[in-house]
Amino acid sequence: MAVIEVKNLGKNFNVKLKEKGFMGSMKSVFQPSYKRVEAVKGVSFEVQEGEVIAFIGPNGAGKSTTIKMLTGILYPDGGNVKVLGIDPTRQRKKLAYEIGTVFGQKEQLWMHLTPYDNFKFFGAIYDIPAEEVEKRISELNDIFELQDIMNTPVRNLSLGQRIRCEIAASLIHRPKILFLDEPTIGLDPVVKDNIRKLIKKMNKEYKTTIFLTSHDVSDIEKLCKRVIIVNKGTLVLDDTMENLKYHYLNKKIVELKLAQKIDFSNVDGIKVLKQKDKSIKLEVDLKKKSLSDVWKLINPDDIIDVNISNTPLEEIISDIYKGG
């Protein structure tokens, strides 16, 4: 069952233009000019119940604008959005009871209150009876391991602890869909990993649909089975992670340690990424040259060590962003 249905979604912003310097400022007062920026252009997709989906793209691609239209923060200029069958612009409050949001860049918790008081406050916002709130706080406490920080004001928590509390608070009303906008921004690798485990856990335990935006490829690789890539306001790819890797992995990275130096610089289909004495790192384009072709260029007795790996997902995504 599709829980998110987006058809031809569009959003424009008018941006005021100003010429350089003081005279430019004067001119913009009397003769203002505006540029129309199409932040989102005819984006369409569907998300099924229980999916963990990555919605990614470079800065300014229209990710946050789309998420904000899905959650009722922004009004679309065109197209249709249905989240759990609800129109976010017409029934914002009804939708708010069904979804949770975590914006990594924006604080939703009250900094001077403890996580416990914040959870109580959010319980009141979602009209949850006091007894039920206590039950859910204890449940979240167990899942997110908050016992040591439950009574510490949020402002005294580390960033990782705060994000844990942000996610926990967004689940107090047991939302069916959770929108996570860069939830791991600024976190160290260990904390990032913990947050990912928690996201996986709640998807498994509560069957929560996760809609994630992130610039961190590890988030996408470790959490999501499907990826939607947007660039310059348009959808450029909507595929499973498996297909993405299969179709775009037509390059291999070959690292060699040789007994004697070999020159690969003029070989078609091979790009020398790095070379230091007899150690060399190559990128082999499998469409032009197979790995056996590469071996034919080397005397097997000269190979001291070899390592073959796939192109990192980060590079694949970066190529897609660039239209590669």
Binding site: T71, G72, I73, A96, I99, K106, E107
Partner: peptide, 10 residues
């Protein structure tokens, strides 16, 4: 800064 209020059912 209205975002956090817009996602609440109030």
């Amino acid at each position: 800064k209205l975002d956090s209020y817009l996602v609440q059912p109030k």
